[in-house]
């Protein structure tokens, strides 16, 4: 059962193509326009700088009344992203609002890369390291970025 494609999704998709956000791309699948291949560049100055992270994004039937579902596909060392790529981000959950859009959500995720929050961890081990030895954690994050998020 699939709801008819709302005008909003068409508009958002068009706008993502015509006015792309720097450092972010979201391209819908041909066979399912609710499913997007997303690439997010690690923010400059962060330990993810230089990396390009793949994500998948899916707009459920009741979008925009419920948030899109997003997951990192590229491995990333981050206290708010677990090893399955699930993201702990309030606007993807209880702070979702229908006035938010794909582009704003992706910007939020990019901002989350620039501002890890070990106080609200999804990945306990990473968050612990982040709190106890931040330099080491950032070093690991850089290594992971180098290893998984950079084209060789």
């Amino acid at each position: 059962m699939s709801a008819p494609l709302p005008k909003r999704i068409i508009k958002e998709t068009e706008r993502l193509q015509s006015e792309p956000v720097p450092g972010i791309s979201a391209i819908p699948h041909e066979e399912n326009v609710r499913y997007f291949d997303v690439k997010v560049e690690g923010p400059g100055g962060s330990c993810y700088e230089g990396g390009v992270f793949d994500l998948e994004l899916f707009l459920p039937d009741d979008y925009p009344m419920c948030p899109p579902r997003i997951r990192f596909l590229t491995r990333i060392y981050h206290p708010n992203i677990d090893r399955l790529g699930r993201i702990c981000l309030d606007v993807l959950k209880n702070n979702w609002s229908p006035a938010l859009q794909i582009r704003t959500i992706l910007l939020s995720i990019q901002a989350l890369l620039g501002a890890p929050n070990p106080e609200d961890p999804l990945n306990e081990a990473v968050a612990k390291q982040w709190k106890e030895n931040q330099a080491e954690a950032i070093k690991t994050a850089r290594e992971w970025t180098q290893q998984y998020a950079m084209k060789k």
Partner: peptide, 23 residues
């Protein structure tokens, strides 16, 4: 900012200089 963690922004900004642009 949508998606911002209440306590994340100040520390995050302090650590990584380029965040302001993102914000």
């Amino acid at each position: 900012m949508p998606g911002q963690f209440p306590s994340a922004a100040p520390s995050g900004s302090a650590r990584s200089g380029g965040v302001g642009g993102v914000f």
